[in-house]
Design a protein around this nucleic acid. Structure first.
Length: 591
RNA sequence: GCGGUUGUAGUCUAGCUCGGUAGGACUCCAGCUUCCCAAGCUGGCUACCCGGGUUCAAAUCCCGGCAACCGCACCA
């Protein structure tokens, strides 16, 4: 490779540049390096940890504070039953065969589907069934016509045992969503039994990827933020829609995708709903909020889009799904969040598997009065006839529809059920009024799900820029890992002591600060820019006499002069986004 | 897991063909100096991915691992 190519690689490929910077400055690096490393695991260093926390804080601020979603936190390991019920055990164990000649691996069920076996059938098959079917259809390698190995299953969930008994299988969660569903009853109770409500669960998830790639984009252990929003399917209206109805969502529609075209269609939230592009208002609401979140993380709207998932791309639980994607330099569009309409799939699964009722009760606005034909066995008459069998006879009778009993009695004067002959005079048939005051149902769910490591990566990539051949990480000020750098112009004449005082003052005010006294002031500014430190405060000779400092802006390199006494107030306003840099003090000329 | 490419200080890299003291640049640290945008000088720390083999001698050659990148497959 020529030196020209290497040079252009470093400059043009942001992924390489960002990863190099991240490693060098301590944003993140791949874990376990001293033992040779292990793919798919990453360590966030001091700056990265700050940045990641700030991004997650931003998500919390939006979702928990502004929208009013609950938050929960729960374990990464779950008993096998949880993921058996959710369908993950079935869906994560993919039957695979490997060509013995060219060693290409194929999904065995997909090969069988090509032979006309339905995916539902293929999914249910045991490995032996699959082997038999593969042989019966004489399936050979589509690439080289080679023979296949025995089918094996590859489980993409991490499996473990809980406690000392090997029979107690546990899985590392591949998503945090199931924790919300299994705790639904308690959460609903905490929500004072009212719909709609949502709950977010932010934490680590594990997927034993066959081959993790692309740095932070695909990890084996990663941070997921799953938000499950529960609502009554008969009242799907989003009361907060007005907040976002004019937000434009660039959507790459299924129809467009099928034409192998990548053009997005812009819809306002309102239009997307009116035209039926998005089938649920809450889903549209969260998509709009997701777009705003990414914008606040520094990704311009023009570099975001929503991809409508094709039927066969959707997860097993979803009826309608969109991926929110962000354009990244190296790989093009990368998913940062998924928006799925999970209906009542998960709660229903857990109800069936656990036997626990997870329905909610809804009172009708007006009680519904119904009048139905009812058959009431007269036990006073049945008793003497059937003695100990009387109750069984009555139970048998209860299984027959009232209308049929009435018809038979009318025609024959009696009815024969399960060997009991019951006569007309032994029952009372009449209209019975019942009042239904409400009903029970399983709530529906829309799920926005964010990959926090991907949010982190895109925030880092979009912050990355060059100014005068120097790297500057221009984070939005709300996520800058370090807010203020404090520098003595020189480490002598009391400037260093004064600078430490200022740093302490700001740290006590709650700002994330860093003190740097080595190297020339220019070098320290350059270092700070590379770490994305939002503001630099420099203590010089004037500070010692008049108590003012220069404040330097990372992105414009402009400087203003302000009094130390004013700093806490000014900086709070600045970092809350209430004033801009120019309002921090008097602008001064820089050489 | 397969194929291709690759693996040398914190980072980028030279050296590998043809085995013989591992070199540079930047960063970092210390000192001097300078002081508002990576100045200068001096000094310093830090590396051949791991394990075998061949050899008097291996960064270099061979074998096996591991990891990264690209492609395939996978990505619920």
């Amino acid at each position: 490779m020529s030196s020209e190519a290497k040079c252009s690689k470093a400059q043009c490929d942001k992924f390489v540049a960002v990863n190099e910077l991240a490693k060098r400055r301590g944003f993140f690096w791949s874990s376990f390096e001293i033992y040779g490393g292990s793919g798919g695991f990453v360590t966030y260093g001091p700056l990265g940890t700050r940045l990641k926390q700030n991004i997650e804080a931003k998500l919390r601020e939006l979702v928990v504070k502004k929208i009013g979603i609950y938050e929960m936190e729960s374990s990464v390991i779950a008993p096998a039953k949880v993921f058996e019920a959710s369908g993950h055990v079935a869906h994560f164990k993919e039957p695979m065969v490997e060509c013995q000649n060219c060693h290409t691996r194929f999904r065995a069920d997909h090969l069988l589907e090509d032979k006309g076996i339905s995916s539902a059938e293929a999914e249910k098959m045991s490995l032996d069934d699959i082997k038999v079917e593969l042989e019966r259809h004489e399936v050979i390698c589509p690439d080289c016509k080679g023979k296949f190995s025995e089918p094996t299953r590859y489980l993409t969930m991490f499996e473990t045992t809980i406690g000392p008994y090997s029979g107690s299988v546990g899985y590392g969660r591949p998503e945090a969503a199931q924790n919300i569903f299994v705790e639904f009853n308690r959460l609903y109770n905490v929500a004072r039994e009212r719909l709609p409500f949502g709950c977010i669960n932010i934490g680590k998830a594990l997927r034993n990827e066959i081959s993790p790639r692309q740095g932070l984009i695909r990890l084996r252990e990663f941070t997921i933020a799953d938000l499950e929003f529960f609502f009554d399917p008969e009242e799907p209206a989003c009361e907060r829609l007005a907040e976002v109805e004019n937000e434009v969502l660039p959507i790459l529609l299924c129809d467009t995708r099928l034409k192998e075209c990548e053009d997005v269609t812009n819809f306002t939230v309102r239009e997307a709903l009116d035209k039926g592009i998005i089938k649920n208002e809450w889903q549209a609401y969260f998509m709009a909020q997701a777009k705003r979140l990414l914008t606040e993380l520094g990704v311009p709207a023009s570099r975001q889009r929503f991809l409508e998932k094709l039927t066969w791309e959707k997860a097993h639980y979803s009826t309608q799904s969109f991926d929110q994607e962000v354009m990244v330099d190296r790989w093009g569009w990368v998913e940062v969040s998924g928006h799925a309409y999970r209906t009542d799939y998960d709660l229903t699964c857990h109800m069936k598997a656990s036997g626990v009722d997870m329905t909610v009760y809804k009172e009708f606005p007006n009680p519904v009065e119904t009048e139905e034909l009812a058959v009431k066995p007269l036990m006073a008459k049945l008793g003497p006839v059937y003695k100990g069998e009387a109750a069984k006879a009555a139970a048998a009778l209860a299984k027959v529809p009232a209308q049929q009993v009435a018809d038979d009695m009318e025609k024959d004067g009696s009815i024969l059920v399960e060997g009991y002959q019951i006569f007309k005079e032994q029952v009372e048939i009449g209209k019975q009024k019942t009042t239904v005051r409400g009903k029970r149902f399983v709530p529906h769910v829309v799920e926005p799900s964010f990959g926090c490591d991907r949010l982190f990566y895109v925030a880092l990539e979009y912050a990355y820029g060059l100014k005068d051949d120097r790297v500057v990480l221009s984070f939005p000020r709300s996520i800058a890992p370090i807010q203020v750098g404090v520098y003595p112009l020189m480490g002598k004449d009391g400037m260093d002591t004064k600078a430490k005082e200022v740093q302490k003052l700001l740290a006590c005010e709650g700002f994330m600060t860093e003190f740097d006294e080595t190297g020339s002031i220019g070098r320290r500014y350059a270092r700070a820019d590379e770490a994305g430190i939002q503001l630099g405060i420099t203590i010089d000779y004037d500070t010692l006499s008049d108590g003012t400092v220069t404040i330097r802006d990372r992105d414009s390199w402009q400087q203003v002069r302000a009094a130390i006494a004013e700093l806490p107030k000014l900086l709070h306003l600045y970092f809350e986004g209430k004033i801009n840099f120019e309002s921090l003090g008097e602008l001064i000329k820089v050489k």
